[in-house]
Amino acid sequence: MKKFGIILLVLPFIYLASACEDDDLETTGIDPFFRMQFINADSLISLDELIAVIDESIDMIDDSLVFYDTLNDGTDVAEDIERLNTEKTSLNSEKSEFNSIKAVIESGSVVINSITSSTGVEAKIPGIDSATIFSIPLDPSADFSDFEISLAGTLYDLQTTYTRNTRVDNDQRIIEVEALDLIVNSSVFDSLELTYEDSLSNNSIDAIVTAYF
């Protein structure tokens, strides 16, 4: 019975010892954000124009080859046909190269030098979700965030507005601020497209903004 008494006396101190846990706050990685990709539309247009010129040249070569095929008067055109075929091969090779460049541009693989917020504390080289999509943090203390994006040596402005919503993640025990109904504008980008991965969502973390420049 003495052991029973000892157990009762010791239990409160065991409980107290367990209460002395690490009290550091985990405040990072919970700010609202949206994702963005950048497409060099000007380069795409130029490439499309170049590819169109190549296609026209190939068509003309094909027409010439058909014409040579129809000649039955004994004229020796073998050299010309060989030259045209060589030229056609070269043009097709050049077209393939342009198409490869186009695919890279369409995937959004561009170099971002930095992203700076007009009200923020410092410029940031953004984290890359994939090879082409960048996470852009939003200001949890305001209903808007303005940015300057340095892209391939040129500065582009970007304005965002949203509705903030505070919520508690009961599983993670985190108080977070969501950014809902995101709207993006810019005076420099050629155009901006906003889509949601989940069509039922209006949360910025599901939004992908595609900027064409």
């Binding site: 700010d31 700076t116 923020g120 410092e122 200001d139 949890p140 108080i175």
Partner: peptide
């Protein structure tokens, strides 16, 4: 009191 840190904005506290 809670806090949310950001890479490019001031730490938000409420």
């Amino acid at each position: 009191v809670y806090e949310i840190s950001s890479d490019i904005f001031e730490t938000f506290s409420d």
